[in-house]
Design a protein around this nucleic acid. Structure first.
Lengths: 212, 212, 212, 212
DNA sequence: CATGAATGAGAGTTCATTCAT
DNA sequence: GATGAATGAACTCTCATTCAT
C-alpha cells in the first residue's frame, strides 16, 4: 500500500510539474510557444515522457482548463462572506477581475484562447464553468428579490454583468489598454465597477444628480 | 515624376490586393489558415513576391489591423444620425457589437488577438484606435452634460462602457457562450444593452422601484 | 526438479499467452497495429515483461511463423483422407487456399511478409516449411507414378503447383483482385483450380490437335 | 519559351531523381525504410524539398506505382511479336517473370506491398493495371478460339494464369525459395512454365487414362 | 518586378527498447 | 518475475523566410 501510494504521489507530482511548466510557458511566451517539446525541454525530460502522463497535447490543455475553473470557483466562494446581495454582487465583480489579473494565463485559457475551446466543445467540461455561472445567477436573483435590480430575465442580466467584467479583464490581459497608464489601471477598474453599479444603488438615484 | 507616381500606384494596388486577399482568407477560413503561402497562392503570385510588399507576416497583420480600425471608425460615425446623446450612446453599443459580429476576424485582430499587438506596442498605430475611443468619450461627455450620466471621470466611464460591449463581443466571438442558444444570441445582446442602460433612462429612475 | 519443471511450464504458458495475443491482434487489427505495447496492454502486463519471454519483437514473429507452419501442416494432413492421388492433389490446392483465406495474417507472415524472413534466413526454422513442401512433393510423386502427371522433375512440378496456389492466395490477401467481385471470389478460385487441372482429366483431351 | 522549357526539364529531373532514389531505398532497405527523410537525405536535400515535388509520401508511391505499370505494359507488348497464340501465352508468362525479377522493387510495389494499395483503393489508377490484364485476356481468348484452351470463362482462366506467374514471382522476390538453389532458379521457373503448359502439347496427352 | 527552389526549424506523435527497483 | 519510468530515434508534414536568377 505504501508503495502504491508513493507511486501515485510521484505520478501526480509529475503531472503537476508538467502542468505548471506548461502554464509558465504560456505566461512567458504565449500560447503558440507552448509545445510538447518545449514543455519537455523545460523540465529536462524527453518529449515522449510527456505522453506517459497526458494522452496528447489537448489533454494538457483540458487539465489546465479544468484546474483554472476549479481555482476560480474556490475563489468565487469567498464572496459569500458578504451578506448584502448587492454588495456581494459588486464583490463578485472585483473577485472576478482579481482572479483574472492574478492568473492571467489561466484566465486566458479559460475565457479568451481559441485553441482549447474548439476541441473542448464536444467535451463535457463546461460543467465547471456552468457551476460558476450559476453561482453568479443566484446572486443576481437575490439582488432582484431584494429590489436592487429590476426583475428581468436572469440570464440576460448575468450575461450583461459577466460581459462587463470579462471585457475589462480581457482588454487588460490582451493589452488593449495602452491609453490607460499601468499604475492607474486598478483604480480605473474599481472606478468602472463603481460607475456601472453606482447608478442603481438604493436611493442614491443617479443620472439625476449627485454622486460625489 | 509621372513614372514614380505610376510605380507608387502599382505598388499600392498590389499591397491592397494582398491585404484584401489576406482578409478574405481570414474570414473564409479562419486565422490559422492564413499563411503567406496561401495568400500568395490565392492571388497567383509566388510567396516570395509577398515579401516585396511587406516586410514579414506581421507587417500584413499590422496593415489589416489599421484597416479594421478604419472600417470601424467609418461605421461608428453613423451614430451621429442620432441626436439624443443617450440614445446615441446606446446606438454606439449596438453598432459596436454589430461591427464585431459581422467582421469577426477583423474584430479578433483588433481587440483580441495576441500576435499583432506585441510588435505593435512600440509602434505608432494606436492612433486609429484612439480616434474611435475619443469619439466614444465625446458622446459620454454629451451624456454627462445632458444629465444622463453622473459627472464622473470620462475615462473611467468610457472604459466601463467599452469593457461591457467588448465583453459581449469577445465572449461570442471566442465562443464562450455555449449556455446561450445561438438563435437567442442577438436578442440576449439587445437585452443586455437594455439591462445596462434602462435603469437610468430619464425619469424612469430605477433601483428605487421595480421596473415592470 | 519439480520446481524447475513447474517454472518451465509457467514460462511456456506465458509465451503461449503472448503469442496468442499477438496473433489475435494480428487478426483483429492488422499487422501494423501489433506493437509490443499493445500486446502487453492486451494481456495486462507491462511492455517490459514481454522482453522476459522474447528477445525482441522479431522473436515473437519467428514464433508465430513457426506456429503458422504447424497449424498449416496439421490441416494439410487432412488431404490424406483422399485416396486417389490426383484428387488428393486437387484437394491439396483447395486446402491450401482455404488455410490462407481463413488465416490471412498467418499466411501473410509465413509466405508474404518481409520482416520475419530476413532475420530467419540464417536460422534453422525452415524445417517446418520444408516438411509441408515434402508432403506436397510426395503427392506429386504419387500422381506421376499413377500417370496423372508426366514424369518430370518433382521439384519443378512442386514449385509450379505451389506457385499457382500461392499466387491466388497472395493476390487475394494483398487485395490485387479489385477486378473480381468479392462474392464471386471463392467460385473463381475453384474455377481456377479446375481450369489448371481439368485439361488432363480423362478423355477430355484438350488442345488435342493441331499445334505446329 | 526556352526558359520555361528548361525549368520544366529541371523539375522533371528532380521528380525522377526522387523517384529513383525512393526506388533504390525500397530495393536496398525495404519498404518501411523508405521515409521522406531518408529519400531527402540520400539526395542531400532537405525533407521539405521533397514536398515541392510531391504532395505527400503517398503521392510518391502513386507515381512509382504508375511508372511500374507503365514499364510493365510496354514490356508486355513485346509478346505481340509471337504470332501463335499459344506460344504467345507462354511468352507472356516468361516476360511477366522477367519483368518481376528485373524490377523487383517495382513488382513488389505493384503486386505485393500492402501500403500503397490501401490508399490507392479509391483512386482511379487501377486502369493501367486493368489494361495489362485485358491484354492478357485477349491472348487467352485467342488461345480458346484456336483450340489451345477449353472454352471456359476467360476471367477464370486469366486469374489462374496470372496467379501462377505471380506466385512464382512473389515467392522468389519475397525469398520463400530457400529450397531452390539460386543459380537453378531461372531454369526451375522455365521448367515450371513448361510443366504447366506442356501437358497439352499435341499428342503427348497426359493423364490420358484412367481416373475414376 | 517576380519567382522557383530551397531550407532550417519545428510541430505532434509513436515505437522498440532499457534499466533501476 | 515484473514493472513504471524513461528515452532516443524516428516518423510525416508545414511554415516563414531567403536568395540567385
Amino acid at each position: 500500500m505504501g508503495i502504491t501510494e508513493r507511486k501515485q504521489k510521484a505520478r501526480l507530482a509529475m503531472r503537476t510539474l508538467i502542468l505548471d511548466t506548461a502554464m509558465r510557458l504560456f505566461l512567458e511566451e504565449g500560447f503558440e510557444k507552448v509545445t510538447v517539446r518545449r514543455i519537455a525541454g523545460a523540465i529536462e525530460y524527453s518529449p515522449a515522457t510527456i505522453y506517459l502522463y497526458f494522452r496528447d497535447k489537448n489533454d494538457i490543455l483540458f487539465a489546465l482548463h479544468a484546474e483554472g475553473f476549479d481555482r476560480f470557483y474556490r475563489l468565487q466562494q469567498t464572496v459569500l462572506q458578504v451578506k448584502d446581495p448587492w454588495e456581494r454582487l459588486r464583490m463578485h465583480a472585483r473577485v472576478y477581475i482579481s482572479f483574472a489579473l492574478e492568473n492571467r494565463e489561466y484566465y486566458d485559457l479559460m475565457f479568451i484562447m481559441r485553441g482549447p475551446v474548439e476541441k473542448l466543445k464536444a467535451a463535457r467540461d463546461w460543467s465547471v464553468g456552468i457551476r460558476s455561472y450559476d453561482f453568479l445567477k443566484e446572486n443576481i436573483r437575490d439582488c432582484m428579490a431584494a429590489g436592487y435590480l429590476p426583475k428581468t430575465e436572469v440570464d440576460v442580466a448575468a450575461f450583461a454583468i459577466w460581459s462587463f467584467t470579462h471585457g475589462m479583464a480581457s482588454l487588460i490581459i490582451r493589452q488593449r489598454c495602452a491609453m490607460i497608464s499601468p499604475d492607474l489601471l486598478s483604480s480605473v477598474v474599481d472606478g468602472a465597477i463603481d460607475f456601472m453599479t453606482a447608478r442603481i444603488e438604493k436611493g442614491k438615484m443617479i443620472g439625476k444628480g449627485r454622486r460625489k
